[in-house]
Design a protein around this nucleic acid. Sequence first.
DNA 1: TAACGTTACGTTAGCGCTAACGCGATTGTA
DNA 2: TACAATCGCGTTAGCGCTAACGTAACGTTA
Lengths: 332, 332
Amino acid sequence: MKNERCTAADVALAAGVSIMTVSRAMNGRPGLGPDTRQRVLEAAERLRYRPSKTARALASRRSSTFGIVLPDVANPFFAILAKAAIDVARAAGRNVFIMNTDEDPDLELGALDSLLGEDIDGVIIAGSRLPEAKLLEAVSAFGAVVLVNRDFLGPGRGSVNVEDREGAAQAIAYLASTGRRRIGLLAGPRIATGTKRRLAGYHDGLARSGLPLDRSLVERCIPTIDGGEVATRALLERAPGIDAILAYNDLAAIGALRALEATGRSVPGDIAVMGTDDVPYAAIVRPSLSTVHADIPRLGSEAMSLLLALDEGEEPSLVPTQEPRVVIREST
Amino acid sequence: MKNERCTAADVALAAGVSIMTVSRAMNGRPGLGPDTRQRVLEAAERLRYRPSKTARALASRRSSTFGIVLPDVANPFFAILAKAAIDVARAAGRNVFIMNTDEDPDLELGALDSLLGEDIDGVIIAGSRLPEAKLLEAVSAFGAVVLVNRDFLGPGRGSVNVEDREGAAQAIAYLASTGRRRIGLLAGPRIATGTKRRLAGYHDGLARSGLPLDRSLVERCIPTIDGGEVATRALLERAPGIDAILAYNDLAAIGALRALEATGRSVPGDIAVMGTDDVPYAAIVRPSLSTVHADIPRLGSEAMSLLLALDEGEEPSLVPTQEPRVVIREST
DNA sequence: TAACGTTACGTTAGCGCTAACGCGATTGTA
DNA sequence: TACAATCGCGTTAGCGCTAACGTAACGTTA
């Protein structure tokens, strides 16, 4: 099956040149005449020569591959993000490893470790659950690192962000403007930066609307449909009188919708629900979900573009942060 | 930033042994005393030594990495499949490249080509849009290949499958049993094997139920929400009298739901809709979607397990095909 | 005790590529 | 015409690992 691999030596022989000339031709480097280049390229084509990226990586100390570490590719937010990032990478001729962490810091550490062994050129880390110090240490050996929705700056480091805080604030303000007074928050997982940002935005929004802060209306949640459902039930039990819920993400909001339906409350009649992210499924549930829109594909492609730039040695210019935008549908 | 990489030579020096001994210790190979092994491992730990998989791959001619080629990771079916596969790979200490083809045969060819350059050990190809001959040629250089939902057998080759044909037949039979008489089919993309299988199952189901075949009730579709919506509109225009639709997948079915709603038909009152795959979102749309259930995570992990086995040189034992099961919800 | 494993390492030779340098031949310049 | 400055290519030396073989030192057996 695995017939002998065609190497640069074969092409060199066929074209009557040295191996080095083959290397130069394949990489479009200067230093050879147009006719020679042509001849080498034709020979390579004829022999279906595919340079070994492994050997190239070893010799050049650059693998031209990247890694993306995220909690869960099956989560549409991360799937869409990853797809956009991969597409940009492909356009630049680079391949990418995908690693799932299942929201587990240890798995995240393991993933990073494993990528280190792959001699990867850089990583995008989305939804990191690692505390600052551990994260810094874990990525210290990577040449280029981009964090999604977590601040990170330095030589070879950068981040792309959605203004989660402002988004949450606007969502709360909107809910308040429609007469909601007791607004609950499904805050998200313990360690996520997103949780902190949304919580801050929640405070901002309440303040802007002149509403009091009641800590009993804040409930942590796992950012999945099931997690949102469980958290909502807990929240309802503790504070049956709430008239609105802002969820960490759309999945949790969908879970909330379910819990509300199961406990016989009408949405948006009895209680309004808002999500975050504006994942495609937010529009197709019934009632369709009001949410804070984020341009996820843009986030992904900007992350990869930034990573590519950092890998080229460019200084981390500040990528403009995405302005959030509230999208109103049926659930509010 | 990128401080000097720690190599086997460093560990060898630190432990007072030869490089080869380090290699043996790191790979758990026999041929050294327990005390020496211990000493080397400790030195490696102390120096945070991570063997370069690149160098290992070059020297051993096995990269211990795999590739997964699929139409679109943002499609939940493939995202869930990929996640399960990646998880199995990780457990075996292998990393995996993800490639999107956007349903484009040329991109698929390009992806395979690119993976060839990565010296990958094997590939999983899901939803291949390549004609048989091209596919065979494109994968000829890979040591191990697993196709998802497309038959493939041989040394180093295998496939995992859901019984799509039988699933479609059962769906049609179910619809007929509830009194539906004019059942349309959103058949899927032109080249997909899934399209052929579902079409055959559609015929089977009609025959079983004693219903006539009317080719004008079959409409091709792109397997996305939008694709399903567009195809449904076309179908309704040509055959306004249909009373049921079976869709290629759940996304297309959701698109159908939308189109039906937009044209003022009630589901399941005026017309029943069934999907295929039982993606999580099938349960959360309203009306919730009746569908043909598939165990997608199992499909993904079996695919990777099979790939691992093939890579180890095992003969391709037949992986049992998944029995489809009709799940009834609100849309029928 | 000689002959023969076995065990526990070290040595040698690459894997397929690229960086860095070398060197003759062709230009350009005064 | 002489000199340097290219250009166009080849040579050499690895990148960090492993396969395969070499070799001492220590049993084991008859």
